[in-house]
Design a protein around this nucleic acid. Sequence first.
DNA 1: TTGAAATTGATAAACCGTCTCAAAAATAAT
DNA 2: ATTATTTTTGAGACGGTTTATCAATTTCAA
Lengths: 144, 144
Amino acid sequence: MMTKHAKEMGVLKEHLGKHQLKFTRQRELILDAFLKQEHITAEEMYHQLARKDPHLGLATIYRTLNLFCEAGLAQARHFGTQTQYDNVSHKGHHDHLICTGCGKIVEFENCDIERLQEEVASRNGFTIQTHRLELYGLCSRCRH
Amino acid sequence: MMTKHAKEMGVLKEHLGKHQLKFTRQRELILDAFLKQEHITAEEMYHQLARKDPHLGLATIYRTLNLFCEAGLAQARHFGTQTQYDNVSHKGHHDHLICTGCGKIVEFENCDIERLQEEVASRNGFTIQTHRLELYGLCSRCRH
DNA sequence: TTGAAATTGATAAACCGTCTCAAAAATAAT
DNA sequence: ATTATTTTTGAGACGGTTTATCAATTTCAA
């Protein structure tokens, strides 16, 4: 059947080919599930995929999500005690406002900031591939 | 001047007073060591202070750094697998341009970006305490 | 089809940070 | 000062998350 995520699947396959790694049913399943999310933890994905056809071990999920990071499809973000894996290719890249009081996360996008980032990069001779912007502070509720 | 960090020591003592907490030699030592750094992990501080007069347990260091956070002197950030405690009173925040090819890191500062960040935060009811901005890409050398 | 090489899942182990608790220290009361 | 009360400390136990180990399985090129 025709897969929904042909482009990302291609990116993965190219990365696998370049590193003598193999394309497996597990990696395909995990990528499919991953691309449906904006961000997810390994544990969450483990429970989501627990009942799928080939049973997926937690170790495999961790290994695969880390592989996605190396392939540029995902980005790891440590928050609280867990690691969030962000879907980089998710359209409309978003940044995070994180409340240091209660842990609430608000996603936002700001074109002006992105434009300035490009400016800073080119001034330094860089071409940006991706970025990470996290603002830490107190939400209105926690400030009081 | 008696102590080098009189101002911060005052902030700490005020916080202690307000919460029925006690001023101890350990808290004094840890604050002194902390204020010399821009940021530090509990583990790093543990090794730094291992040979000091009163021996400091790792648990005490964690407890005290968290206390500093509550007093507004420090700010915890999850970086990699560990928690970085940032020295809030340390000014001159800088962001990073990171080359994914050779690992080169360029530091930069951009007031316009910072201003826009404040804007985004207040629009969402947040007060920013700190932030983290990393731009990943290829430097001029690696692009060719 | 065959065989070398990589991957998988289960679980052990490592790691980080917090919790527990008896002993010690700091403050308040006498 | 001395005593009483409360908090803090350090050592190690503990819990949750992530990585390492390894035999069995799967992939893929020849």
